[in-house]
């Protein structure tokens, strides 16, 4: 297998658009309702209350975010609910110039994995906000910016984003 021409018939965008080959279009309709379950169900209810809750495993001493009713390391039920802070630090971050469907956005979307204070390296994917992109760095201390209580609906979007901790406003990190 070296220099020989391999089989396969490539088509260009024009081939498709100009109908050089026959095609069949099928807009799939795949709709689901995913049960939130015990752990994430409670997690979402607490978000509505403006709080972040985890589950603790007394054997490995971890506080799990996102919460789960079992500890995948110890392979036993987790033991207790535990509220954690609504602050944390940036584990990693990115500036996304693409929407979910790969189309481009004007202003980059600021995204990060936030290690939540009070959890055992429990991370949440979320947005960063109230920050200039060049100021973002790994280890930056951040705090949740919540939607007003009346707008919260038990969703990860009840937190609008995480913003840098302002020591004047929030006290020492």
């Amino acid at each position: 297998m070296t220099e020989r021409t391999l089989p396969g018939t490539p088509l260009s965008d024009e081939d498709m658009q100009q109908g050089k080959v026959l095609t069949l279009n099928w807009p799939a309709s795949l709709r689901y309702e995913w049960d939130t379950g015990v752990a994430i169900g409670r997690f979402l209810r607490e978000l509505k209350n403006g709080r972040i809750i985890g589950r603790s495993c007394h054997r490995c001493q971890r506080v799990l975010i996102p919460p789960r009713m079992f500890c995948e390391r110890c392979f036993r039920p987790t033991d207790a609910w535990q509220f954690v802070q609504d602050s944390g630090s940036v584990n990693t971050y990115s500036l996304s110039h693409l929407r979910w469907d790969a189309s481009r956005v004007e202003e980059p979307i600021l995204v990060a994995v936030i290690e939540i204070d009070g959890s055992s390296q429990g991370g949440l994917l979320h947005y960063l906000g109230d920050v200039r992109p060049e100021e973002i760095h790994i280890g930056m201390k951040v705090k949740a910016v919540w939607k007003p209580a009346e707008e919260r609906e038990g969703s990860i979007l009840d937190i609008r984003h995480f913003r840098p901790i302002d020591t004047a406003q929030d006290g020492p990190a």
Partner: peptide, 29 residues
């Protein structure tokens, strides 16, 4: 996009590349 958690992550409208970008940034740093 359906590899992301349907309840905790997809509401944020992530693009697949987010995961790689976040991992690459952490690796570089």
């Amino acid at each position: 996009v359906t590899i992301f958690d349907n309840i905790l992550e997809r509401p944020l409208e992530p693009n697949l590349i987010w995961i790689f970008a976040l991992e690459m940034q952490r690796y570089m740093d």
